[in-house]
């Protein structure tokens, strides 16, 4: 694994309408660990939830901005259309039963080139897939206290699917600018991988001439790619600027540093550093138990807490 390249997916961020339903689904039903409760740093009236594995490993992280007043997102080009997660291939039956038990809308299992896949929707209608894999041994550390038995736990992200109007342009960007490799090309769909490929390093590009989508609840806001360190991030930032792309300055998100930019198909990408990590401000046992704010918002804590909706962090015991 080389230092100076994109290592895979760091996280995916989507929009949700109801914080309690979001918590119940992602920590209760899916058994992901809530590793951070914070607010959208660009809009402190909106909750920002981070779900991941036991310790918040990059590549296992799905995050949500909570916007109770948002309208429903409209699917179309310029967006991440689907997010896939890894489950052990022996756990397909377990998950079929679990999803049924909790009334989740799902379809499958369907045989795909990546393995057996269950297609489902979260409470906001976000398209997810659980893919049965046999090569996900140590990609993620399942949440010890979680409601899903260890041997069946979700093991991080498999990949994302973006919908764009030009496979050529979006593909060129992935290959020439971000250093991905194309490993599959079919009618209307290509697959690119970061680093050595494999789960958590995959992006599928679907090109279609449907109209552009619009963001709302149930939509993905952006996908973030991992780099090992700030130097690599700066290297990408300079490369993007030199090629004439608009890219934000490096933004300190406390648990990682980020730059944001749009690829040619309008999908919003982020490049995030692996560190410092979620444990920089909370000890491992206490991740995701209290509202955490960046320093520069601390003196407004009382006002922020008052404006945020009340939530109950689900007790894993109730979801076993």
């Amino acid at each position: 694994m080389k230092r100076d390249r994109i290592l895979g997916i760091h996280h995916v961020t989507a929009i949700s309408r109801d914080p309690q339903e979001n918590l119940n689904f992602y920590t209760g039903v899916l058994g992901l660990r809530l590793v951070k409760i914070s607010v959208n740093q660009d809009d402190p009236t909106a909750y920002h939830f981070f779900y991941a594995d036991e310790q918040g490993t990059p590549g296992t992280d799905i995050t949500f901005f909570i916007y109770p007043n948002a309208s429903k997102g409209v699917a179309g080009t310029g967006q991440v259309k689907e997010v896939s997660l890894n489950i052990p291939s022996e756990s397909i039956d377990y998950w079929l039963q679990r999803l049924q038990r909790y009334g989740v809308r799902f379809r499958g299992p369907r045989r795909t080139d990546d393995g057996l896949a269950i297609e489902l929707e979260d409470p906001d209608g976000l398209n997810l897939r659980l893919i049965g894999r046999s090569d996900i041994g140590d990609i993620a550390r399942p949440w010890e206290k979680g409601p899903v038995p260890r041997e069946h736990a979700i093991r991080g992200l498999f990949g994302v699917l973006i919908s764009v109007d030009s496979c050529r342009h979006s593909g060129w960007f992935l290959e020439e600018v971000l250093g991905f490799r194309k490993i599959y090309e079919g009618p209307g769909r290509h697959r690119y991988v970061a680093d050595d490929g494999g789960p958590s390093k995959i992006i599928d590009v679907e090109c279609t001439d449907t109209s552009p989508g619009s963001i709302g609840y149930g939509s993905v806001h952006h996908v973030a790619w991992r780099v090992k360190d700030p130097e690599t991030q700066i290297m990408y930032r300079e490369k993007l600027e030199k090629l004439g792309f608009y890219v934000t300055p490096v933004i300190d998100r406390k648990w990682f540093r980020s730059i944001y930019f749009r690829e040619p198909g309008y999908v919003l990408y982020e490049i995030a550093t692996d560190g410092p990590g979620f444990q920089i401000d909370e000890p491992p046992e206490e991740l995701g138990t209290k509202l955490v704010l960046p320093e520069w918002l601390e003196d407004m804590r009382e006002a922020i807490e008052r404006s945020l909706p009340k939530i109950n962090i689900p007790n894993p015991e109730n979801w076993r």
Binding site: R107, R110, T112, L161, G188, R189, E206
Partner: peptide, 12 residues
């Protein structure tokens, strides 16, 4: 193109 593109039309 016969690649199965996982849209969720007609989900149960």
């Amino acid at each position: 193109g016969s690649m199965d593109i996982a849209g969720l039309s007609g989900i149960i």
